[in-house]
Amino acid sequence: MEVRTIKVFTTVDNINLHTQVVDMSMTYGQQFGPTYLDGADVTKIKPHNSHEGKTFYVLPNDDTLRVEAFEYYHTTDPSFLGRYMSALNHTKKWKYPQVNGLTSIKWADNNCYLATALLTLQQIELKFNPPALQDAYYRARAGEAANFCALILAYCNKTVGELGDVRETMSYLFQHANLDSCKRVLNVVCKTCGQQQTTLKGVEAVMYMGTLSYEQFKKGVQIPCTCGKQATKYLVQQESPFVMMSAPPAQYELKHGTFTCASEYTGNYQCGHYKHITSKETLYCIDGALLTKSSEYKGPITDVFYKENSYTTTIK
């Protein structure tokens, strides 16, 4: 009895394709271990004539594949690729409408935090270190965002349907971005203890939790000093293409032309909904596939993004 075979390709990165001759009487799992086709788990399936010449994702289970996976995804987590594939199996079914010149995501599976993050990423200057993220990001900007969303979920250790947080998501993504040249110098002034300067680099240099107003941050924000008295913390120097200011959701007025974009969060910790506000020729609110415009805006804002380049204080 002759062994019926077909020729397929296996890959971990969709760049390096490895030619395989597979036995049609055995499952993919018996031949390769966990195997995925377009995100779908085909591990328990036997090869079919229609699979001839198709590319299958496999887990990096030998040295060659491990090197290829690390170079593309910059992670050695053995569960990463499987999590990416199972997320992709959902995100490829989502709709990605162009809204006001940006790629958004039609609401499904509690994905409003991903839509808000995706919209924000198209408006701030950011370059990702893992080629996987950078490639998928370019495709997302062009309207094909399924891979990018699935990668975000995998890097953030999230599953489809789980509630997510924009600030946490951005923080994970910033860790995989090139923020080497970003720098922030802060000064804390206390009447009792004097003053202390701190220099922050990388992710810490672009994120701040405690106030939404970048102007206020430049002037000074009140913080408790270690001595128990009130101290003032203010920005001395900022070198970065953008800054992200966050605070627990509270009524906040966004003035046209003073910011790049913002995240609105309605609801409580267990259950809520994100919308995205962007400042173009007027203010726009993007909620999944829905767009509304207004000249002014007041609502429960939790993150505001500002364009920056270089700032030095005039406070002496």
Rank of each mutant, 00 (worst) to 15 (best):
A231R: 02
T91Q: 04
A247C: 09
F9P: 01
N178T: 06
V189I: 10
N187H: 11
K93N: 15
T43I: 05
N14D: 11
Y36N: 05
G82T: 11
T103I: 10
A132D: 05
D77A: 07
S263C: 12
D109F: 02
S171K: 12
T258I: 06
T27D: 14
E68N: 07
F174D: 01
V236M: 12
S310G: 07
V160P: 06
T35A: 08
E71Y: 07
T43Q: 13
C112F: 02
E68R: 07
F32P: 05
A146C: 08
A108Q: 09
K316W: 15
Q195G: 08
K275M: 07
K127C: 09
T282A: 14
H273A: 02
N147I: 11
T75L: 07
L151F: 02
Q195H: 13
K93M: 07
L17V: 08
K229N: 13
L59M: 13
F9Q: 14
L102M: 13
V58R: 08
K307A: 11
C149H: 03
Y96T: 05
A69R: 06
G29L: 09
L283W: 01
A289V: 14
Y96A: 03
M24K: 10
Q30V: 12
G33W: 02
Y57S: 08
S171F: 15
H90F: 10
S263K: 00
Y214F: 13
V58T: 12
V67K: 10
D23N: 10
Y57A: 08
E253T: 10
T211S: 12
S79Q: 09
H256T: 11
A40P: 08
V166L: 08
A115T: 14
A136W: 07
Y252E: 06
Q238Y: 01
V3E: 13
M170C: 11
I277T: 04
E215Q: 07
Y234T: 11
D38S: 10
M209F: 14
D13R: 06
K44N: 13
L102Y: 08
H18G: 04
V42F: 13
Y297R: 02
E239D: 09
Y208H: 15
P241G: 08
T192L: 10
V188R: 09
Q98P: 06
C285F: 09
H176Q: 12
A289I: 10
Q123I: 06
A177E: 04
Q230H: 08
V304W: 02
A108R: 14
Q270F: 06
Y96W: 03
F32E: 05
F174S: 02
G299D: 05
H90E: 12
G53S: 13
A140P: 03
V203R: 11
L119E: 00
Q195S: 13
C149G: 02
N157A: 06
K218R: 07
A140T: 10
N147A: 11
P300A: 11
M245K: 01
W107A: 05
N89A: 14
Q123H: 07
H276N: 06
